[in-house]
């Protein structure tokens, strides 16, 4: 995959949307058609509601801020009821397939069970979540779990069918298709990876190395120069913090004030790092295979 594709997230989607559903004013129609029924007795309560980035606060309040870095375009919501219990279906249309994965990855639950809907669907007694194409789908029940179970599932299945995208992970995740990576741990962070503003956007995950779990980060950049600048900014931060570090030939080893022993390396236009290490060698082992693969995935344009 071309790195420009990654870095201009949403262009493909924008083209698809522009070709099929753009109104005269340039705004985009909702991608979702909600089901009319969720089984016997379960009917829609009122019309579906649509929220834009300006009005989304009215619906999910402060939580809306989490959605903006992932390019929220609109959210649609439909409520269903059997007279006693309620099911609410929310579909968030994000900036790109990767953005939909990114926002979904914030909501993953380690205690929920896998559920067959969209990509990486999961469920518990009160909710089902998945992502598909540029959409993040969140279906929630309010009421008695037994009474809501079938309606929840019916809703998820119908929405899954109505969204005409493939149920697969964004291709950018190939960069992390390396032995030992726990796929459930992968997050796409659209702003300040590990809380550092110079790591503007990228991935965080856990990788098993020598029977121990290591936290790794992957920061793709538009060019080798940008990747160098990112690593330099990190070195500058460490220097001014008075941290001990060594930065030679695109390799950086340090005792970070937040993340203890760390190892970072630049591979072409991608910076890959390992944090909270018990020893540096573990970092090198954790980082190398990811760096080599990520450099191919986010290869140079042209």
């Amino acid at each position: 995959m071309n790195k420009v594709r990654f870095l201009s997230m949403g262009l493909t989607l924008a083209a698809v949307l522009a070709s099929c559903s753009t109104t005269q004013s340039g705004r985009v129609e909702s991608l979702i058609r909600f089901p009319d029924h969720l089984g016997p007795n379960w009917k829609t309560s009122g019309k579906s509601a649509t929220y834009t980035p300006e009005t989304i606060f009215e619906y999910i309040d402060g939580e809306a801020e989490i959605y903006f870095p992932y390019g929220l375009k609109r959210a649609s919501s439909q409520t269903y009821s059997d007279g006693k219990n309620v099911v609410v279906a929310d579909v968030y249309e994000m900036g790109s397939f990767l953005d939909a994965f990114g926002i979904f990855s914030n909501y993953r639950s380690s205690t929920a069970r896998p559920y067959q809907a969209g990509a990486e669907g999961f469920a518990d007694d009160y909710q089902i979540m998945f992502y598909k194409g540029p959409c993040f789908v969140r279906i929630t029940a309010v009421g008695t779990p037994n009474d809501c179970a079938e309606a929840l599932q019916s809703c998820a299945q119908q929405i899954d069918q109505n969204l005409k995208f493939e149920s697969k992970a964004p291709s950018e995740l190939d960069a992390l298709a390396v032995e030992g990576i726990n796929p459930q741990s992968i997050r796409y962070v659209a702003r300040s990876v590990i809380g550092y503003p110079f790591f503007n956007r990228g991935f965080a995950a856990e990788r098993m190395v020598n029977n121990g779990s290591v936290r790794v980060v992957v920061i793709p950049q538009p060019s080798e120069e940008n990747a160098e600048a990112v690593l330099r900014a990190y070195a500058d931060f460490l220097k001014k913090a008075g941290a001990s570090f060594e930065y030679v030939s695109d390799k950086l080893t340090a005792i970070d004030p937040m993340y203890k022993s760390v190892y970072f390396e630049r591979f072409s236009n991608v910076v890959v790092g390992a944090i909270n290490l018990s020893d540096k060698e573990l970092g090198v082992l954790a980082v190398k295979p990811i760096g080599q693969r990520a450099a191919q995935v986010f290869e140079k344009a042209g």
Binding site: T22, S25, R27, P69, G71, G95
Partner: peptide, 30 residues
């Protein structure tokens, strides 16, 4: 209106990514 929306994303939400993305979706005629 749409151009102003893009400015709001850029200056208000400080999200230049969303702003540029929305901006690119405005057809050339507008």
């Amino acid at each position: 209106q749409e151009v102003n929306r893009c400015l709001m994303y850029a200056e208000g939400y400080r999200d230049i990514h969303l702003a540029k993305q929305t901006f690119r979706e405005i057809p050339a005629a507008f």
